[in-house]
Amino acid sequence: MWDWNFVWQIIPQLADGVVITIQATVLGTIIAMIAGLGLAIARRSRNKFIRYPFGFAAEFIRGTPLLVQLYFLFYILPDLGILLSPMVAGVIGLGVHYATYTAEVYRTGIDNVSKGQWEAAKAINLSTRQTWTQIIIPQAIPPMIPALANYFISMFKETPLLAAITVLELMNQARSVANYHYKYVEPMTMVGAFFLLVSVPSVIFLRRLEKRFAPKLR
């Protein structure tokens, strides 16, 4: 049933997939962090013509499946004359999808800084920039860290979706090996084991982060 020789034989090919999976997660994380910040700022805008469209877009993206969004990016953009490699389309899709989640984290992080801090900053006559960089952001960031880390772990677990738009990440490599040898048990189980091997330590690390930063959250 379980063939160790086969396991050793396919490890190099799966390792290629692991590299792509990790790249996609890292790039997606970077996009999600930056785009999420932009989105959070747009949703705090005083202009309702900025606030409402971005608010709706965020709700829409969060309420629809990432897979369909990936298809959409992958098939529609070429029609508009934008040619993206599957990997680039995939990373953008992941990043934008998770940006709608990170934006919420930024928002609650900022809203959780108590009103007194804003008033005190005003009282000692700090400029808007000083208020943000010296008072608000340093207090808002620590409680955000565990929440952000949580979403990046989720993103990592969603990278197998990129297989659907032909990115050769771990899941796709495992499927092609499985189809080629017509043996599913080993490759599928190995993929599962890999995810477990990364996720479980990250969750333990995450709980530590939560313990470290949570007391500061009011």
């Binding site: 599913y184 599928m188 189980t189 599962g192 995810f195 477990l196």
Partner: peptide, 22 residues
């Protein structure tokens, strides 16, 4: 921990491709 740790896609493919073999 098992179901939160492995990805839903892995679980789905495992259920679809591996369970029949078992």
């Amino acid at each position: 921990e098992f179901f939160r740790g492995t990805s839903i896609f892995v679980q789905l493919f495992w259920a679809y491709f591996v369970l029949p073999l078992l």
